[in-house]
Amino acid sequence: MSEARSENSASNVAVFDTHPSDAIDAESPLHWSRQRGVIDAAAGEGQVTVVERPFLGHLILRGGAIVLDEAVRETLGVSLPGQPLGLNHDADGSRSVQWLSPDEWLVIVPAGEEFELENRLRAQLGDAHFAIVNASGGQTLLELSGEHAREVLMKSVTYDVHSHGLPVGKGVGTVFAKTSVNLRRPREDRFELVVRRSFADYCVRWLLDAGREYGLSVE
C-alpha cells in the first residue's frame, strides 16, 4: 500500500491507496460462494439475473450538504441529491451519488478511481467540516435485473419495490431477509443491492432460493 499525503489540502489527514501497487489476485466477496459451488453459472434460465460488481470504489461522504454539493459537482460532475432517498448518476451511469442520511452520502465509482477522487475531494473541500471514508472493502454491489426481478425482491425486502414506492433514481436503506441492504433503482429494469461484504454469500444464497421459481442465475 502506498502512502500519500493529499496535496493542496490544508488538512493533515493521512490518506492511503488501498489498492496494492503490485498485481495481486484479489478475491471478490463471492469468491467463497463460487468455490463452494453455491453459485452455478450454468444453472437458471436467466429470467432473473444477478450480476456481481465487485471491487467498485465506495466512498462515504459526511458533512454539510451545500459544501459537499459544490465539491462533488466540481470533481465528479454530479450534483448531490438534495431530497432524502435521492440517487444521482453521471451521464454514462457508472458513477453515482446516493443520499444515505441528512448528512451522509454514498459515492460509487468504477474500480480504482476512489483514491484519486478522495484526494481531489479533500483538496476541493480544504478546511471545511467533513469526513470521507473509503468503504470499498466493506461492501459490494449486486445487480438484479430481468422481468421477474421485482417479484424476487418482493419476497425479500419489507420495502414497497413497485415503481410508485421505488421509482428510478431512488435508493433506500431497508431490510433484506435478515440483514440490511441499500436498495437502489438506477434504471426501470434494474435494481442494485449494496450489501455488506461479509453478508454477500448470505444474500446470494437467499436470492438463489427466492428466485428459483423464476430461474434466477448468478453471474
Binding site: Q83, P84, L85, S101, P102, T158, Y159, V172, G173, T174, V175
Partner: peptide, 12 residues
C-alpha cells in the same frame, strides 16, 4: 422524519 416516509417497524 429524516427519510420523510413511512417504514416498517422492523427497520427501527
Amino acid at each position: 422524519p429524516y427519510c420523510d416516509e413511512r417504514r416498517e417497524e422492523e427497520e427501527f
